[in-house]
């Protein structure tokens, strides 16, 4: 396996596999969060299930964290190797003549998304770990002991316009990252599907719908808390 990851194609395949997993996770994440727009109760129920189910917490969550860390570490490894391969830079280079901004700047959109994930971890994930595994409160209830805390915490987080602004910018960059990454992952896996018109359209739709969904959720709770 280490030999496979030492080859240029092996690394790209590994990037694509982790990307597929992360893209699948985004669909699940959005599906859960979108319920907060129309049913706080359903959002609370789903959040409690995801936050306390042993299979999700002990099996899927570690895989997800590994996937995120792997994708970023490998992204940086590839970037460093590519920079070394370039050597002297051109005095004049017209990249826009033959490729999209998104495809040439995956590292920029990727770093913004990474910064966002760190903020997101500080906002939601670390407090969750603190409540559940440090304080040992797995009830998911508010201090009144009557109702779930998830929806209220979500609304509270989106009060700050600065945080909402940061989320919106990060989601736009996520969209640009996905606009190239979705079909690129198929190509790296050797699948011709990524080059077909249908898959390109699905990729475009995915890269717009997923970030837009998260942006709508952030704005909705900002203006309706």
């Amino acid at each position: 396996m280490s030999g496979f990851l030492k080859s240029s194609i092996g690394r790209k395949v590994a990037m694509a596999l982790s990307a597929f997993f992360l893209m699948f996770f985004l669909i699940i994440h959005l599906a859960v969060n979108i319920t907060s727009l129309f049913s706080p109760d359903l959002f609370n129920e789903l959040s409690h299930f995801m936050g306390t189910n042993p299979l999700v917490q002990l099996a899927l969550q570690p895989v997800l964290i590994f996937g995120v860390v792997f994708h970023f570490v490998m992204g940086f490894v590839l970037e460093l190797k590519n920079r070394k391969a370039i050597g002297v830079k051109y005095a004049q280079n017209n990249g826009a003549a033959n490729s999209t901004w998104m495809s040439r700047n995956m590292i920029i959109s990727g770093v913004v998304v990474l910064a966002f994930i760190l903020l997101h971890f500080i906002d939601f994930w670390i407090p969750e770990l603190n409540v559940k595994y440090i304080h040992g409160d797995m009830s998911g209830l508010l201090p009144d002991g009557e109702s779930y805390r998830y929806f209220e915490e979500l609304q509270h987080k989106f009060v700050s316009p600065i945080r909402v602004g940061a989320y919106v910018i990060a989601f736009v960059l996520l969209g640009l990252h996905l606009a190239h990454g979705f079909t690129s992952a198929f190509q790296s896996m050797g699948a011709t599907a990524g080059r077909k018109k249908t898959m390109q359209q699905i990729g475009k739709a995915y890269s717009v719908i997923i970030p837009l969904g998260f942006i709508i959720i952030a704005l909705f709770h900002h203006f309706n808390h």
Binding site: S7, S8, A85, A97, N98, S99, H180, S184
Partner: peptide
């Protein structure tokens, strides 16, 4: 592929610029 890597060529980002 092994020789390509040994020569110090970079990795493909699938920008498609080469094809153009």
């Amino acid at each position: 592929v092994k020789q390509m890597d040994l020569e110090g060529f970079g990795n493909c980002t699938n920008t498609g610029a080469c094809e153009i």
